[in-house]
């Protein structure tokens, strides 16, 4: 699920950036530092949408670096148990398959794949129904439901299922492109 929230961060800026475009430098450094990171509490920071305010800088003794407390708005993405996501399959093996929904990695184990789909090993490992009409392989798009999340301080990993109504492959790379 996506959220638009305000976060705060203390930015350290090198003295060489002090000048006319100090503020721009600060923002671009913030984006570089923050976007794409993951915190267990808020999820993945997808994008910074604006700066709320920049506080007074504090010069650190010895180094000359200045610390600015920056409040910024950003979009975060945090997966929840029970959430339905669309994801791209990144890897298939006999234990199941991995899929990615943006920054989140999801593992679907083979007992959470419908019973009528069987693993086919080979050059392009895949799960196929007995009549061959549905195939899950690398780069397939699947709709899945998250049934468990593992949230660390800097990492979120999910396990999902496609064994439910309206879940499974939503488009085959062979047919769409």
């Amino acid at each position: 699920m996506f959220f638009h929230i305000v976060l705060e961060r203390n930015m350290q800026l090198h003295p060489r950036h002090f000048g006319r475009d100090l503020r721009e430098k600060l923002v671009s450094k913030l984006m570089k530092d923050v976007e794409g990171t993951c915190s267990g509490r808020h999820g993945f920071v997808v994008a910074i949408t604006g700066i709320e305010n920049v506080g007074k800088g504090l010069i650190r003794d010895g180094t000359g670096f200045v610390t600015f407390p920056v409040k910024y708005q950003c979009v975060v993405f945090r997966p929840f148990k029970g959430e339905i996501l669309e994801a791209v399959v990144s890897m298939v093996n006999k234990m199941g398959f991995f899929a990615e929904a943006g920054p989140v990695q999801i593992f679907v184990s083979n007992h959470l794949i419908p019973d009528d789909m069987e693993f086919q090993s080979g050059d392009m490992p895949n799960y196929t129904t007995s009549d061959g009409s549905v195939k899950i392989q690398k780069d397939s798009e699947v709709r899945l439901k998250i049934i468990g999340t593992r949230v660390d301080a800097t990492e979120i990993f999910c396990i999902g299922t496609i064994k439910d109504d309206f879940l499974g492959v939503i488009s085959d790379p062979g047919t769409t492109s």
Binding site: M91, N93, M95, G96, F98, F107, S109, G148, R150
Partner: peptide, 15 residues
Amino acid sequence: ALDAIRLISFEDDSF
């Protein structure tokens, strides 16, 4: 299964 991501070996795609 939650450990899955750490268990993959890149040699043969299994855990």
